[in-house]
């Protein structure tokens, strides 16, 4: 297994997902474009959120793309690292809080 499952050139094939569902692809693109426009949040803030989600979701394409976008919006690596810590804290917290389910389940069967 020397070949990578995620190939950089595959990103250029993203639009092929619209081949069998062109209307849905068109709507996705329009919506995606609108989402990242400046609104109540700045484009720089939205890019930081996107980077945090990308790392949490571990999407290599999104990590590469939004790392560059964050830099192009004027963020620095200190801010980007903090954003990733936020994602990491939520992932960690979300894991840990499921410990309550474990405790509930254990309590139900333990003497």
């Amino acid at each position: 297994m020397t070949e990578s499952y995620y190939k950089p050139e595959d990103l250029l094939k993203f639009s092929s997902i619209g081949d069998d569902a062109p209307e849905l692809w068109k709507k996705f693109n329009e919506w995606y474009g609108e989402v990242f426009k400046e609104g109540a949040l700045t484009e720089r803030e939205k890019a930081l959120i996107a980077l945090a989600v990308a790392t949490a979701e571990q999407c290599p394409y999104c990590i590469d793309a939004f790392t560059k976008t964050c830099l192009e919006k004027g963020s620095n690596t200190e801010q980007m690292t903090e954003a990733i810590h936020v994602a990491s804290a939520i992932k960690g917290g979300a894991t840990l809080i499921h410990g309550v389910q474990m405790r509930n389940a254990a309590k139900k069967v333990e003497l």
Binding site: T42, E43, R44, K68, L71, E72, G74
Partner: peptide
């Protein structure tokens, strides 16, 4: 100037930063 091989942010946004 961008600190690497990427494009610059909008002038007004980075000026405010």
């Amino acid at each position: 100037n961008p600190t690497g091989a990427f494009m610059a942010p909008s002038q007004s946004a980075i000026e405010a930063d």
